[in-house]
Nucleic acid binder design. Sequence first.
DNA 1: ATACAAAATCTGGTTAACCAATTACAGTTG
DNA 2: CAACTGTAATTGGTTAACCAGATTTTGTAT
Lengths: 233, 233
Amino acid sequence: MKLDILTKTETLDIQKTIISKIRDLINAKNLEPGDKLPSERMLSEKFEVTRSNVREAIQKLEFYGLLKSIPQSGTFVANIGVTAMNGMIEDILRLEEPDFKSLVETRILLELKTARLAALRRTDDDLLKMKEALDAYTEKVLNGEDAVQEDLLFHLAIAKASGNSTMNTFMLIITPEIITNFEKYHVCDKDLAQSGIIEHQSIFDAIKDQKPQLAKQKMKEHFSVLYQYCYNI
Amino acid sequence: MKLDILTKTETLDIQKTIISKIRDLINAKNLEPGDKLPSERMLSEKFEVTRSNVREAIQKLEFYGLLKSIPQSGTFVANIGVTAMNGMIEDILRLEEPDFKSLVETRILLELKTARLAALRRTDDDLLKMKEALDAYTEKVLNGEDAVQEDLLFHLAIAKASGNSTMNTFMLIITPEIITNFEKYHVCDKDLAQSGIIEHQSIFDAIKDQKPQLAKQKMKEHFSVLYQYCYNI
DNA sequence: ATACAAAATCTGGTTAACCAATTACAGTTG
DNA sequence: CAACTGTAATTGGTTAACCAGATTTTGTAT
């Protein structure tokens, strides 16, 4: 029986409350970029929460670039004005958990772009890594084994070859969630994997031959089935 | 004079070392999805680091969906096989800090898409919020004041209206970094802001009239100057 | 031998004390 | 009076002890 351990949702609610209180405080005190916030201890006392709670809230705002903590000195308002600060905190507070449709939509957007960029920028080393991932995938499928992981690694190899570190990071962020949802909705079939070999090969060839438009086109075809599927869930 | 406080880079290096040791351990013990890792205390002893260090490393791997901590029970390998696990950890370890070019490239990709989606999906409430942001921006510019924040909030309002929570989150993540770099490289001029009024209005109208292709086109024109600029840095 | 119950142990999470660097200020000196 | 210096208070970060729930082990009765 649960007694006093807070659930993840409750913890998140506390965090959101603290964040909005920090926003109110910044507005009330008219703090501008570079100004110092009250210390963590004072905030925890003022808000009647633990210092850990305050720290987590600050770290979240730091992740979104709104605050900046400096050791043995204090926490400061980042170089963003109050207007943007208020707007962004509002957005952060209202952020929903990503739904499957939104994930797939974003993945396709990113993958079409990374395929195109990879065709333009891939190094020989990138090509080698992609070939390895492609071969591993092909072998698994031909053996009739599950190849979801190898599929995924081939796509991540393309993202890396795109030379865009931001898109690479974003792909890494959404990939595990995509996998989880794939398994939940049983998206991947064996016959899909079979046709996947040819499609992957086509994408690889286009990138190898440095044909950006073709690479994008082949990636689009690769996703066409998935796209339809996800819009019907 | 610095004595024994570690810099942020050193802390990050320790974290990367721990992450790769966790990967080695998973491989050595052939841990599969659902299997339990040794406790944080054991790991900290085995790796000869503090438990805090181990916790941070685990939390990072949890962020990327590779591990899952359950209170009073243990840390478990997520539902991702060893192959994908190894590949993703390799990618995570090699992740670079995002460069400005990569940020702008990604922003443009996202904004073209969110503009299009917003034209398709915007609610009346979305439209109202966008109008408010647009008016605030216009007023500032006409008064000859700096309007970077209002500019940004208009774009974030579009991202929200796109109805895609993942893209919305990604926009929030890159926005502060974009601002910082804008200020560093002095990207925004006053005359840019002037022409920005007309461009923003065009984008807004297209979204209001639910013309996705036009919205995308107007957004593209809005970014054309920026695009050229950033590729010359 | 088996089923069940109770206690000891182990777990991730939380908290409060502690750390060293910074900062503010009072005191001192020229 | 100004510049400097040493000391005390303040800061975010770190650590070790603690918490309560989960797990395993042990003991007991059937």
